[in-house]
Design a protein around this nucleic acid. Sequence first.
RNA 1: CGGAGCGUAGCUCAGCCUGGCUAGAGCACUUGCUUUGGGAGCAAGACGUCGCAGGUUCAAAUCCUGUCGCUCCGACCA
Length: 576
Amino acid sequence: MKWSQTLIPTLREAPADAEILSHKLLLRAGLARKLAGGVYTFLPMGLRALRKVEQIVREEMDRAGALEVLMPALQPSDIWRQSGRYETAADVLFKIKDSGDREWVLSATAEEVITTLTAGEINSYRQLPKNFYQISVKFRDEIRPRFGLMRAREFIMKDAYSFDTDDEAAQKTYQKMYDAYARIFARCGLKALAVEADTGVIGGKFSHEFMVPAETGENEVVFCEKCGYAANLEKAVSAAATAAGKAGAAIDKFATPGVATIAALARPPFNVPAEQQIKTLVYIANDKPIIILMRGDDQLNEAKLAGKIGSTVFRAATAGEIFAALGAHPGSLGAVKGTARGAFAGAVLADERLRGAAGMTTGANEDGFHLRNVSMERDVAVSQWADLRTVKAGEPCKNCGAAVQIRRAIEVGHVFKLGVKYSEKFNALYLDEAGNRKLAVMGCYGIGVTRTLQAVIEHCNDKDGIIWPISVAPYEVCITPLEVDAGSEVMKTAEALHAGLLERGVDVILDDRDERPGVKFKDTDLVGFPIRAAIGGKSLARGEVEIKPRGGAMQTAKTGAALETIVQLVKSRAQG
RNA sequence: CGGAGCGUAGCUCAGCCUGGCUAGAGCACUUGCUUUGGGAGCAAGACGUCGCAGGUUCAAAUCCUGUCGCUCCGACCA
């Protein structure tokens, strides 16, 4: 390929709407352009890199025995109703109507489609296991698309769905996918960490996310360096000590005028440490208020709450709703028996960390008053205990007791063990050896292909631009002649090298633009080609070509040996 | 969905507060000349419904209202 014939619209300055580095580089290097919020066009360089990521994914999925298929992006809404996700995933589904007013859902994922398919096509244990995958465009009506390809409304995902005869076989498939994922991300030049994860709206038994550590990541990962425990903050648990306190004393109501926060009560003149306070949260779930009790210094983890109540459809109550339920305003709320002066009749969920706590202080459900010497066992009618708190850095690891750390990360892949959730809904049954009808056991496995691409950029760059791992680079080699007059020795040498590399199967681009050397070097660095071969009058006079790995040291090769040197360099980098 | 900010040339932005001649700069683009090893110089040129709609005014990029779009923060801590 000749540079002048493709389109690589590099930008000296980043567009103002790009915030994070990888997003800026995506635009500056001319890889993609935004059409609308969270919707991008891939330009030639971006598409080439994307295709290489896809190819790595494809090779590893094939190697793991998965079968590539292609499912429709346009899905009848009926199947989403059948799975129940028409409601539970309503906020992320794009819905459209055809001219006959029939409603369709744009594919956000494909459990419904694949399970419908297998229900019809798979009838016997002899046909199992099967694992189907596709690499296709997905649509999600993100509340807030951001950071370029990181969180987009339309993106490319590899999604796979496995069907096994039983749990044990499904576990093996899960492990196979887990291993394939580790290879995929390693081949893309990423250090991805597998962490325990929340199953979210997809549901299922358990799951792991593959996370690439990055300051700009949208997820937080709790991990223990000592024993290797790693989990998404939404799921993580620690061995944090339970609440303590002296029991026995009778409840004492005291005036706290103007005190409306945990912090205010912790200050003089009250001096009640946050860990001796009970925080009372009011949520509306299924249109009814529920109370959630946390230790004062703990934070509610909404993902855990969602898991506990089995729905993501809940929200914090408004001040008005709270007053109606408890007869007091935020700041003086509590759950001590008999104190609610409103119409509250809902559930009281308490965080496990409060179990057995005594000598606690909490709101009196009367504005300007709190209660002290509160004992959870004696004074509070808890309807359900649950782990609802968010782990904090430095708490002891639940496995080994060492202090856990928290880092931000980008989620590039997610593997789920689904069980029979969808098999049941869609009657994905097979006959076993004994002729019994059984439900296929499913797993599902996703990789955000476009997000992975941007994660590579976020991970591999310097002040001059992108530094592509050779495995996903748009071109492996860029030849940079410093004179481009047809027939000049420099250009003839460059063209010969270009032709030779093409013949040897190297992905190569020839920068034949009549630009000054500085412009060419800057652009080549910005786009991030792994190897640059520069040919100028000076080097050619010495009979040499200058070969410079991006981000590495320059070396020279005699013109006659340049081809072989570059081929070897490409090979060694591809293996490394 | 709540809050904040921003929409002026392909990109980065100035001008707006305090309304007033023909709406500007840098980069990019076109042409010519000079230059040519890390984003060159000179000259000439082209490029704008100032997001859109309405209003106020003798006069609106500028003030007001609405609307659309984009970005960021939040959407637990009572």
